[in-house]
Amino acid sequence: MSAFTKEQKDYQKLVKQKRPKPPMLKNIIAAFAVGGTICAIGQVILNFFVSRGMTPEQAGAPTSIIMIFLGALLTGLGVYDKIGKFAGAGSVVPITGFANSIVSPAMEFKREGYVFGVAAKMFVIAGPVLVYGINSATIIGLIYYLIKL
């Protein structure tokens, strides 16, 4: 159905006008506070590795690994969805949210087996992230290579 009739358009207008809006301000504050806190925790971990003699660049990888571990663990414990309900994007956007997007479907589809259930479902959300991340990085790398020639 591409073209809507006038009746359909009028109805859609009515729904749009009546539908309750998400509490935008509250959501933004929650996203800022929780997202900021997650990043601040990441910074504390990063600083720890730097204090043990790593350069900030070297410390990035172990920091990500620990944050991913924490996100996965909190998802397994059933805590991350509660944080997410409050924080919205504040817990979706950090890399802990990436871990959440891997563990939550994998855990839920365990009863469908370890191949088509757990392993396949791990990438329902993470797969597209990897695909678009790697493809865009490759295109950018190619452009960079061509410019450098």
Binding site: C39, A40, Q43, L46, S64, P94, T96, F98, V129
Partner: peptide, 8 residues
Amino acid sequence: KAGATIPL
């Protein structure tokens, strides 16, 4: 720093 590297 981590505020820019931890988000996706």
